[in-house]
Amino acid sequence: MNVLRWWWSLVLTFALLALLRVFVPLPFANEIMIFSIYTVGCNFLLGRVGFISFGQPAYLAVGAYAAAFYFYYFGTNPYVGILIGVVAGIGVSLAVGPLFVRLRSDYFALVNLALAVIIYYFMQKVLVDITHGDNGLWFLTNLSSTPVLDLTRPDEFFVFALLVGFVVWAFYKYLDDTIYGACCLGSKINEDKLKFLGYNNYSIRLVAFVIANTTTALAGAMYAVYLGFVSPEITSPTRAADPVIVTILGGVGTLYGPIVGAIAYTGMKDVLSKVLGNWELVIGFLLVFIMLAGEKGIWGTLEPLLLKAFRRAPAPGAAGESKVGGR
């Protein structure tokens, strides 16, 4: 029964996302899918491990530039490019993670921001000969068509993004229900208590760091394939708070918060920017409101109401049915 509920919530969510394609323009739907995958890693770090990261654009850029370099200099297959982006994400996470995860949450946030700034200037100035600086790398025409799902076609890219999203969310849902997921939450609540039991917090955090940032790099590589263009703007420090904002907007630590947050954020940006010059102001006020209203975010508030509405009869021992962290 739990397995059915487990799968149905995922299938229903992604069926609704597929329906979104009918009601919104394709670029908007694709942007939501990529932004959701971009944010889910940040949501995992913040909601599960208790680490806020203002450096997610750094890992997005790692995935995007790794794929971009491949497309611009070496090959044409979009799937290979995405795979290279993911491998680069794992590599960079493993390189910096052992140092970063030793830090306290506040320093962790800042050191990641510093990494984003470093990568920004490397791509803009230091490696200008191969990155073309602010002009970026253009490779849309280099991408080759692929059988089954041709990622050079935006409509087929959307199907691919949906499938990737489904796998990513299934993976995070699976993680939530494992001992490792409980360890992550335990590490967030009180790391000493985990040590009493014999767990090494460092290993738990390092694995979480690699998982989260590899997901972000995957989003970066998908972004590169979708746009056929990458510039240093992708890792601009001015956009460092975007995934954190979307995470809070959707509901920190909730499974579907990143999707809801991405729809809300991208939607507001799309709609409000047409009528308001300073649309970020509205986002700012909305975040203040969410914080004051209980920090639950949109999905964090809606989820219990929806569960209550759709539950036919209260099951005995219902408290136990809510999974860890309410996800």
């Binding site: 939450l185 335990g186 208590k193 009493f196 039991l197 014999g198 090494n200 860890v324």
Partner: peptide, 23 residues
Amino acid sequence: AYAIAGMGIKYVPQDKKVFSDLT
């Protein structure tokens, strides 16, 4: 501390704080 726990020396602290969000 985690390695000492792994050696079979377990500590039950005074604060009675469990992982409150877990069942």
